[in-house]
């Protein structure tokens, strides 16, 4: 097995990942500039940013299963960055919603959130990501100590809300949300399986 990367290598690796993670955003800018975002460009932007937020969330959640399955630990150092990349796309997604979709008409936005369950769960997930994003740094991690871990368990609730958000949005063909739900179920399943094994050992 390859040796764990050095601190310097991790630093560069993070830079490369961040650069790659910006491609979907750059793509939106280029497509928008060329006026080729399709017939419903606003929905295109909403769906694209939403999808990438979900992808980043699932990558974030796969760091621990990789450790459990392979014993590798160095990738845990990337987890916070992936979480922040998710938050980045979540913010763009929310911005597209309040700006491009609703033009900051707060009354209509409040109505939309209150009235439509899929919007409500999505909005709740967004609100829950805020404390996680602000406490993702080492300083807050040290300050919060044991509570940090408890707080960051919110990510599981967020993940489930996000899948619901996607599932309820779709009119009839649930193929896409089903694929993401399956990946999430696997990631959570691996955790549950290993926890269960640990408990059995202790007993």
């Amino acid at each position: 097995m390859l040796p764990a990367p050095s601190k310097k290598q991790i630093f560069w690796l993070k830079g490369v990942i961040i650069a790659i993670a910006m491609i979907p955003l750059i793509r939106l800018f280029i497509l928008g500039w060329q006026d080729s975002l399709g017939a419903n460009p606003i929905q295109f932007v909403e769906h694209s940013t939403g999808t990438w937020a979900l992808v980043m969330l699932l990558i974030t959640l796969s760091m621990t299963p990789i450790r459990l399955l392979t014993g590798l630990t160095w990738q845990i150092q990337l987890r916070g960055m992936f979480g922040l990349l998710m938050f980045f796309y979540v913010c763009l997604h929310f911005l597209a919603y309040i700006w491009l979709d609703f033009w900051f008409v707060w009354e209509d936005i409040a109505y939309d959130i209150g009235k439509h369950p899929f919007v409500l769960v999505g909005f709740s997930a967004f609100v829950l990501t805020i404390p996680l994003a602000f406490t993702s740094n080492n300083f807050m991690m040290r300050r919060l100590k044991g509570r940090w871990k408890t707080l960051h368990r919110l990510v599981y609730i967020i993940a489930i809300l996000v899948i619901m958000h996607f599932w309820w949005l779709v009119k009839k063909d649930i193929t896409e949300p089903f694929i993401y739900a399956t990946v999430l179920a696997m990631l959570l399943g691996i955790r549950i399986y290993f926890n269960y094994k640990k408990i059995l050992k202790k007993a």
Binding site: N40, L100, F102, P117, F118
Partner: peptide, 22 residues
């Protein structure tokens, strides 16, 4: 009369581009 998923009080006219309000 609202739909469980979509607001029916306003709509987006297709063809207006990225910056067209409802």
């Amino acid at each position: 009369v609202d739909h469980p998923r979509w607001t029916q009080s306003s709509e987006r006219r297709i063809g207006g581009g990225l910056f067209s309000p409802r």
